[in-house]
Amino acid sequence: MTLYIGNLSYEATENDLREVFEKYGAIRRIVLPVDRETGKRRGFAFVELADETQEAVAIDDLDGATWLGRVLKVNKAKPKQPGGQSNSSL
């Protein structure tokens, strides 16, 4: 399972996310998308932890939490839709 982290500060880095999520277990990967044209972060990320139970705890702890001045939206990421569009929850 992969977590979707929405309403993320544009200042957040992969290392920032790693610091927060490593408390919940081993991180398999972090994806912090950037806009193709501007190279700026897009305000959301995906984090995959090694254990689904730990991901559920992370959702419970972090969904609605304020971090870097923003109220986070953390939930299970939805699978990518055909045609390359993701269907993340907002």
Rank of each mutant, 00 (worst) to 15 (best):
M1D: 12
M1P: 14
M1Q: 13
T2F: 10
L3I: 06
L3Y: 07
Y4K: 08
Y4P: 10
Y4F: 15
G6V: 04
N7P: 09
N7S: 11
N7I: 09
L8Y: 05
S9I: 12
S9R: 03
Y10V: 01
Y10G: 05
Y10A: 00
Y10E: 02
E11A: 05
E11S: 06
A12W: 04
N15A: 15
L17F: 09
L17H: 06
R18I: 01
R18K: 15
E22P: 15
G25V: 08
I27C: 14
R29S: 15
R29W: 13
I30E: 04
P33K: 08
V34W: 05
V34S: 08
D35T: 13
R36V: 00
G39L: 03
K40R: 14
R41S: 06
G43I: 05
E48P: 07
L49C: 01
A56G: 06
A58H: 04
A58R: 04
D61A: 11
L62C: 01
D63R: 13
A65E: 10
L68S: 01
G69L: 03
G69C: 00
L72A: 03
L72H: 06
K73C: 12
N75G: 15
A77I: 05
P79S: 03
K80D: 01
Q81G: 07
P82Q: 03
P82G: 02
G83H: 10
G84S: 05
S86D: 08
S86T: 07
N87H: 13
N87P: 08
S88Y: 14
L90F: 14
